[in-house]
Design a protein around this nucleic acid. Structure first.
Lengths: 225, 225
DNA sequence: CGACATTTGTCATGTACCTGACATTCAGCT
DNA sequence: AGCTGAATGTCAGGTACATGACAAATGTCG
């Protein structure tokens, strides 16, 4: 059990709000991991839903979570979050119901932190509080980027920008065109057309649920960032 | 001088990341106000510009600040922030240059906190760190709302939503149509048309640089939130 | 008070994008 | 292998919105 804790703590120190200037001590990391419980969610299930009482926040450890909100005109995806990110904290700190839903798009493992356990922890462990702050501000930055991506831009430019941001270290983006369309609030047809054009220009290559970036320079130019 | 400090401290306790569950002691508030210096900015001047080295963060005390980014297609406004809000912290915590510009749209008074002073303060005063976190998450929430407002919505719906969020306690919004258009990333003409329609429907009244909300219910319906 | 700047109201034209519909291709499963 | 659901590719028609160009109204300042 001790060994498992250590492993978990090391993981947290590496990924949760990672900064070079805020080292997380072993004690800190263990305190964090012991303040919550690890939960597993199957693909497609919800961590929480819009309107639920915000009892807990979640630190994602494995998998990907989609934050979205429903409205009369369908779903609006606010963001997709991976390991190291925090979800559900906004509503919890504001003592209001969750304002968006969080769904596991893959199998997800997360650390669930109840309000009652988290607050004392943050107040007694400043480094954890700072790290939490850093992850939050990281999300704020990403959301600002999404905003900018949408404003004053054609679908072609939006797609180019999204591909640049979303590509992994192999230059690949593993999303269906329908998903990309949802992230951008555009129609799948428009995304398809944009991708075709980028492909014709030689900037990318497309496949089934896979897009590979061939020329970042050209893409950046096409995004008119 | 003591009295001035007290006054300042009381102000900070009231407005900065205000929560009912995290009381800011007088010592905390004074420590915060003494960690930085108060600066004044004339209308139209910049607190910082995109690309500048991120040396400091600012807590707005009076006035309004506009956060925006330039691109090939013109300005994209990320947000407008008033008293109690924090700007410039994202870049500072990430040790990167500012990624957006902050301009005073009115005369602005702000508390300027250098990186070197702020970090020790946050690490030694957990309540301040938590409050900082709360303001950050509040901004994240507002930005998510902006995102949702833009996605899958017509200009009419966007305008209706904006008016609901932006109205003061007298039901008034003091923005020019051009400014609203910029906030939404739409054209002034479209905003004008949307406002005309809402006015015809009796939901609002319009004047020079002023819009008064007459019927929030109808507006909410028109926003299809 | 009158001159000027800002803001609002309205038109005409072009186009990017959405909706809906359908054929084709791909991946996973038995 | 063959079947099935999911994802991609493509077309036609309609529309919301951008752009550009003015006129009218409102505020501001000498």
């Amino acid at each position: 059990m001790e060994r498992l804790d250590d492993q978990h703590a090391a993981w947290l120190a590496r990924t949760f709000g990672r900064t070079d200037y805020l080292p997380l001590t072993r004690e800190d990391a263990i305190a964090l991991s012991q303040a919550g419980i690890v939960i597993d969610k199957y693909k497609g299930t919800h961590l929480f839903k819009e309107g639920d009482d915000s009892e807990a926040a979640f630190v994602i450890q494995e998998g990907e979570v989609e934050l979205y909100r429903m409205s009369m005109n369908g779903r609006s995806v606010v963001g997709r979050l991976g390991p190291g990110a925090v979800v559900g904290d906004i509503a919890m700190f504001q003592s209001e119901p969750y304002l968006s839903s969080a769904k596991a798009v893959t199998a997800v493992r997360a650390l669930r932190l109840e309000r009652e356990a988290l607050f004392p922890l943050l107040l007694s462990r400043p480094v954890i509080a700072m790290r939490w702050l850093v992850t939050g501000l990281g999300q704020l930055e990403a959301t600002q980027r999404s905003l900018i991506r949408l404003m004053n831009r054609t679908v072609l430019e939006q797609v180019a920008d999204l591909l640049l941001v979303e590509q992994d270290r192999f230059g690949e983006v593993r999303l269906s065109q329908a998903t990309i369309a949802e992230l951008l609030g555009a129609s799948r047809q428009s995304v398809n057309e944009a991708l075709s054009r980028l492909k014709d220009a030689g900037s990318i290559n497309t496949g089934y649920r896979r897009i590979s970036v061939l020329n970042s320079q050209e893409l950046a130019a096409a995004s008119s960032a």
